[in-house]
């Protein structure tokens, strides 16, 4: 039998791009160039990676720390910066309770320190900037979506892009100063005067899904599993096709 296998159901979420396997396999040295505090829990780390192969918004990388005794710890992190030719990339990390990698970044890292990265990894959550993008994130789930927002701005793309971002409070809203008219923040615990407090709801999605762009939205959801389950159910209930919902969950 030599025919290509086709799943009997619609392929849920086809990858958006072809991925170069070899680029992802090689570890490279990344030097901490700058550290910017975003919120009490999150900071952005700008890394110099001179031979970075480039990425698309939404892709992630693998990051590795090595102790003097040879012990290593590695984690996957979304790339926050838009693709550019600067030889730098940015990641924004929450300080995870007891997290050995995020803990090192938040308590020990300073400019000049060297870590290792490889990637970019996975084309599944990538957004090449081609189709209308409906982005929904919570907490640090906004990070890969911000790469898309920045890419959209930098390239002056005209394809529709909207961001719904959920945070506990204004001071915990990552990238708060960078958002523009494309973004609607949703605050779950406390909000500025005049802004309602509450969970992401059907009413937030309705204006976007009731009048979708001509080609429809590509939806990208990123956050905790609980948030991703909630947001994806709202999308489905609002008529968004399941095979145009990409979900990236923390873990």
């Amino acid at each position: 039998m030599t025919e290509t296998f086709v799943p009997p159901t619609r392929f849920a979420v086809p990858g958006r791009i072809a991925v170069a396997g070899q680029a992802a396999a090689a570890w490279q040295t990344a030097t901490v160039a700058e550290i910017r505090r975003e919120t009490p829990r999150a900071a952005t780390f700008r890394l110099a990676v001179p031979a970075w192969a480039g990425h698309l918004p939404g892709q992630h990388l693998q990051l590795r720390l090595t102790a003097a005794d040879g012990y290593t710890a590695q984690r996957h992190y979304s790339i926050a910066s838009a693709p550019d030719a600067s030889g730098h990339i940015e990641v924004t990390l929450d300080h995870v309770e007891g997290g050995e990698v995020s803990g090192w970044f938040h308590t020990a890292a300073r400019p000049g320190d060297r870590v290792e990265v490889r990637g970019p990894v996975s084309g599944f959550f990538a957004w090449p900037g081609d189709r209308p993008a409906l982005l929904i994130g919570a907490g640090s789930g906004v990070v890969p979506l911000m790469s898309m927002v920045r890419h959209h701005r930098r390239r002056r793309l005209t394809v529709p892009l909207r961001l719904l971002v959920s945070a506990r409070s204004p001071r915990e809203l990552i990238y708060a100063q960078e958002f523009g008219a494309e973004t609607t923040p949703v605050f779950t615990r406390s909000a500025p005067p005049g802004t309602p407090v509450g969970r992401l709801a059907a009413a937030h999605l309705a204006p976007l899904t009731a009048e979708p762009p001509a080609d429809g939205w590509e939806a990208y959801v990123c956050g905790s599993n609980a948030f991703a389950e909630h947001a994806s159910r709202l999308l489905v209930a609002a008529g968004q096709p399941v095979d145009r919902i990409r979900i990236e969950r923390f873990g």
């Binding site: 570890w27 040295t29 720390l65 090595t66 102790a67 003097a68 005794d69 040879g70 012990y71 290593t72 710890a73 050995e100 090192w104 020990a108 890292a109 320190d113 060297r114 870590v115 290792e116």
Partner: peptide
């Protein structure tokens, strides 16, 4: 080996 300054990790997890 590319040692990360100040990183000791949690060898007990290894």
């Amino acid at each position: 080996m590319n040692v990360t300054r100040g990183f000791t990790g949690r060898p007990s997890m290894d």
